[in-house]
Design a protein around this nucleic acid. Structure first.
Lengths: 291, 291
DNA sequence: TGTAGAATGAAGTAAACCTACAACACATTA
DNA sequence: TAATGTGTTGTAGGTTTACTTCATTCTACA
């Protein structure tokens, strides 16, 4: 008997990830699916339409928006998603939890966020991102606030590959830097909401100068995605204090890009990495070791 | 979203169990299902009938013989049965992988690193860390190189809780800052190897001034752990270019600490968080939105 | 207020599922 | 050997379900 392809993921997270970009009636359908509705697997297209209060055509459009060509394709993944063997201690954290329990929950949430992000990853966009990055003359990595450390992380990885990149996490300096870019350059912008004013302005400016733009965001329906040539989406269960799990997924995305780039020319990557390590070791050596 | 009914089982075994009692045409259908046929999930009743060389009515009878009232009921269980979760593609990445495959592998590695780190997490040490952090008068967060972004991430979380903390990723400034610390203060040092000269020196200096030290490291046998009052270990499968997965785990650890601290006084945390958000929103507001 | 474009539902079509029944095969009995 | 009964199978047609198309409604913006 066939043993199959497959990957575990949570349809709920996928739906939540796309949620901001849904039309009103698609949101109605999404809401219905996000409710706890045990009979859902046995429902027909028309059933779902009736329960959601929309037409069956809208339910079908909802499926298409999620990337499925047919209702039954969606149904297959839905069935698999609802199957989900045990696990999932995806409870909310709460005040009564011991620190140990809290830690486990945060770890579990992080894992879930990465899984969900993996599930919504558009391989074509990812591939395109790698091509843009390796083809760019200059790369400007930007992000403000909590996106700043991710921007730095990305820089820390990319420059090791010999890429001509810069990181700028200051709102005003970002703007200045992007004013100097040309059409052969690339901007990578990291913004969880995709709606922060400063990165948007910077991105718009870069775009007006003909730059390509890669956006890493947790909001597929944001203004930022309008400017972006490539959008890489990170997903998490969005309950305020847990939005940070989405960050973890963005780090994972960053690392995936790094590996993808490194693999385009593995020998060169290893060589450059070696040079850097040698330089560091030398430094440690000359300064002597500490007791 | 609904979280299941039903248990995992193998449709193949069920079919084999009923096999002797099948009629000849039912056996034809059974044989078809028992073959290794990957496209089977997407087939219709008529497709299966054609492939098995029987009529669609016979396929339906086959389902009924297995106890299913309707073809689609059977299909649901079949889909579930063929769904074998994950399989852990923990292979090494290699040059021949497509970017999409690379991405999945990196994600899988990240998940694994978080799981491993969760597994080795010493709850007592974790709890102790939270107490030290919330009891400290001043907190200095340090890290150099690739540990820098993690240090910044930690700062970005902690200051939101009203903690009196600083981040310093410059080797010399770290040293200067630590020279000013007292015994009521705390140093949090992030170092993957635990053997980098500069953070070690800084930590030693802080320790000599009576500071407490929390170390986040991927190397439990390093010199750094000798100075540390609390050690939080991150783990990954250590193959050079994949060490970065360990970083992901360190971010997860950072977030776990943040949540742990926030939960000690949730109402205050939410309030401070709100103040920050209000300030940011106001900024966006005054700057107007961009088109 | 008018207009372009998006969003939506209604109606119709195609496909899939299911039922009912007729035909057949084979065994049993007269 | 013929008649009868039982169980198996396919066919034809009805019903449900999925999908397409298009007209209508809404919304944003001039």
């Amino acid at each position: 008997m066939a043993q199959i392809e497959s990957s575990v993921f949570d349809m709920g997270s996928v739906i939540r990830g796309y949620y901001p970009s849904f039309t009103p009636s698609e949101k109605k359908v999404a809401d219905f699916f996000l409710e706890d509705n045990p009979g859902i697997i046995r429902m027909t297209l028309a059933d779902v339409a009736a329960e959601s209060g929309v037409s069956d055509a809208s339910v079908l459009r909802f499926c298409r928006s999620l990337g499925y060509k047919r209702w039954l394709e969606f149904k297959i993944d839905l069935t698999r998603s609802l199957h989900r063997p045990s696990e999932q201690i995806l409870d909310e954290v709460n005040e009564k939890d011991s620190p140990g329990v809290l830690a486990k929950k945060v770890f579990q949430n992080s894992i879930q966020a990465i899984m969900d992000t993996r599930a919504v990853l558009d391989e074509e966009q990812f591939e395109r991102a790698i091509e843009l990055i390796s083809g760019a003359e200059k790369i400007l990595i930007i992000g403000v606030g909590t996106s700043g450390p991710i921007a730095h992380e990305m820089y820390n990885r990319f420059f090791r590959l010999g890429l001509n990149c810069k990181v700028q996490t200051d709102s005003y300096l970002q703007m200045m830097e992007s004013a100097l870019l040309s059409s052969r350059d690339l901007v990578i912008v990291i913004s969880q909401t995709g709606d922060s004013t400063d990165p948007l302005k910077t991105t718009a400016l870069a775009k007006s100068r003909g730059c390509c733009v890669i956006a890493i965001t947790g909001n597929s329906g944001s203004k930022l995605t309008d400017f972006a040539d490539v959008v890489l989406l990170s997903v998490s269960h969005e309950n305020r204090i847990e939005t940070i799990a989405s960050r973890i997924a963005q780090y994972a995305l960053t690392h995936a890009l790094f590996i993808g780039l490194a693999m385009r020319n593995i020998s060169e990557a290893v060589e450059k990495d070696q040079i850097i390590w040698d330089a560091i070791m030398e430094r440690n050596f000359f300064q002597g070791n500490i007791q």
